[in-house]
Structure formats: C-alpha cells, structure tokens
C-alpha cells in the first residue's frame, strides 16, 4: 500500500475513533445515556468492533511512523511494517474475543 493511502486511512480512523470513542466513554461514564446505549448489545458490540479496529490501526501506525523515522532504512521500514501489521491483527482477534465475553455473547 502506498504511504499516502496509509496516512489517509490514519486520518479516517482518527475521525472514526472520535465518534465511536465518544460512544464508548458515554456508555461507561454517563449515568443517563450509558444504560440506554448498553441496552442494545449487538449495536454496542458493533460500535466496539469498529472502535477497536480504528484504534489499533491508528495507534500501531503512529508507532510505526515514529519507528521508521528513528530508523530511516528501506529494509527496516519494510520489516517494521509487517511486524506491526501482524501484532495488530493478533491484538484485534484477541480483543474481539475479550469484548464478546465481556458483553456476554461468547
């Protein structure tokens, strides 16, 4: 994937995090709106699935950008990218499992 596409997705995921993260914060901290959001378990799980995916992409891409700036070498850049991708996908799989257990769906 081209670096410009990666960074465009970085901004798209930032907007997604702002929306889904706000729902996550309200669900867990607002006594009035919180139970209302959590009453629809499937929708809240969907929100959390998008939030987790966007957050992991954004966070791990941020770490990748810092790392390849520290080590500006084409070979290192390639391997850092693949390592971050694998760690991110594994974390997402485990995180989704944890979410489903927490919401009583698995």
């Amino acid at each position: 994937m081209r670096e410009s596409t990666v960074m465009f997705l970085h901004y798209i995921t930032a907007i997604l995090i702002a929306i889904t993260g706000l729902i996550h914060l309200l669900a867990n901290n607002d006594p009035a709106i919180g139970p209302l959001i959590k009453s629809n378990t499937a929708l809240y799980l969907g929100n959390m699935a998008i939030f987790l995916a966007a957050l992991l992409y954004h966070a791990f891409n941020g770490v990748r950008v810092i790392l390849i700036e520290m080590v500006p070498d084409r070979c290192w850049t390639k391997w850092i990218g693949w390592a971050i991708l694998i760690v991110g996908v594994v974390t997402y799989a485990v995180g989704l499992q944890v979410l489903m257990v927490a919401l009583g769906l698995a």
Partner: peptide, 17 residues
C-alpha cells in the same frame, strides 16, 4: 500525548478496562 495514549491503551487492554 500519542505515546502516552498508546501506553494507556496497552494497560487498558492487558487488564481489561
């Protein structure tokens, strides 16, 4: 702040919530 947030979410995931 980005690095601090990454450290927080790692702890937030490791010990859920």
């Amino acid at each position: 702040t980005g690095i601090l947030i990454v450290l927080f979410i790692l702890a937030h995931f490791y010990s859920t919530g």
